[in-house]
């Protein structure tokens, strides 16, 4: 198998292809979807926030966990960023962003510590912290709302500015994706995350630092949710306590569509990022092809179910193929050396 066919056979190639088809078909119907400056910008800009969230979530899901509190973490950190601009007017933008990222990391770490130390399912814990973090945001913000006027113009410009035709937020998402993907593929820690998700008991038996890795995964996810919060504030210029409500399902959906197995151990962050782009591009394409946007969620849902069903079929086929290989390729088949050994 050449490197090229290996690449084309990857699960990510399928999603990329689907993405291209969606873009192609929609552009054929309405050329402005891709070929206008606004269309090009939207294509790249819209998925930026979800890509960052999906990358973080993918890392958690690869360890056979899940973090449902991402939407709440995003809301809380976005409001925190806005609040900092108002309360500490002279703070540099970078510092605000770093504080939000750090705050996100702490929130993620809280999830991770409960999961890793009490050994309880992440699903329940993060369902609980989804409520708690959102409640904290609601209590803190009340009906208050941070508007564009409250934030520095330079900050808001980040939400729309482009460098060489590429929006700044998209560049941020791409850098995040590249760094995390590199880590997951080339570092010991990254491979251990896969091992933990592949078989948690065996990981313990092997003496892998399971707890530390889980804490790291959750903290990274939280930090990226914090970054996404900052991006959210810059992009939309307005933050209320309800920012990011219901986002967790989109994020998990993107990860699953991107080929990351919900039971851990397989899939890549690149796939998750592509999944996020596919979901949001389809959302924008629907009205163009004449489907009212009321149906967006139904399409997203069908896509998620279709993706996991497809993964299952592929996995079954693979295991059947491996079993068949074993049939033709028995270890230690009766070679001459064996016979000589067997005579007592």
């Amino acid at each position: 198998m050449t490197a090229l066919t290996a690449l084309l056979r990857r699960r990510e190639a399928g999603i990329a292809l689907a993405l291209l088809v969606v873009i192609g078909v929609t552009t054929a119907i309405q050329p402005g979807f891709l070929l206008s400056s606004g269309g090009w910008r939207d294509l790249l800009l819209t998925p930026a926030i979800l890509v960052v969230l999906a990358v973080g979530q993918a890392v958690v899901v690869i360890t056979r966990n899940v973090d449902l509190s991402v939407g709440s973490m995003l809301g809380l950190t976005a409001y925190l960023a806005g609040r900092l601009f108002i309360d500490v007017p002279d703070l540099p933008i970078v510092v605000v962003a770093l504080v939000a990222v750090a705050a996100g990391a702490v929130l993620g770490l809280v999830n991770g510590s409960i999961v890793a130390f009490a050994r309880v399912p992440a699903l329940v814990i993060t369902l609980g912290t989804l409520y708690v973090y959102r409640g904290v945001a609601l209590t803190w913000a009340g009906s208050d709302r941070i508007d564009a006027g409250d934030m520095p113009r330079a900050f808001l410009a980040l939400g729309t500015r482009q460098v060489l035709g590429v929006p700044v937020l998209t560049i941020v998402a791409a850098v995040v994706l590249a760094v995390v993907a590199y880590y997951m593929y080339t570092s010991r820690g990254g491979r251990q995350l896969y091992a933990i998700g592949s078989d948690p008991d065996a990981a313990e038996l092997q003496g892998l630092p399971v707890r530390r890795r889980l804490l790291g995964a959750f903290a990274l996810n939280g930090a990226l949710a914090g970054l996404a919060g900052v991006m959210f504030a810059a992009r939309y210029g307005t933050v209320s306590s309800g920012a990011g409500v219901g986002l967790e399902l989109q994020v998990v959906g993107a990860v699953v569509v991107g080929g990351v197995a919900i039971f851990g151990g397989s899939g890549t962050v690149v796939g998750a990022a592509l999944g996020a782009m596919l979901l949001l591009t389809i959302n924008r394409a629907l009205p163009v092809v004449g489907i009212p946007d009321f149906w967006q969620r139904a399409v997203v849902g069908a896509l998620i179910i279709g993706a996991i069903a497809l993964d299952r079929v592929l996995a079954r086929r693979r295991s059947h193929r491996l079993a068949a290989e074993r049939d033709t390729d028995q270890p230690g088949g009766a070679g001459p050396a064996d016979r000589e050994e067997a005579t007592p």
Binding site: R191, Y194, A195, G197, S198, D199, A202, L205, G265
Partner: peptide, 14 residues
């Protein structure tokens, strides 16, 4: 106790 999703070499050197 092997990790089914990792390659054989990765399993050895994990």
């Amino acid at each position: 106790a092997s990790f089914p999703d990792l390659t054989v070499a990765e399993n050895i050197y994990l």
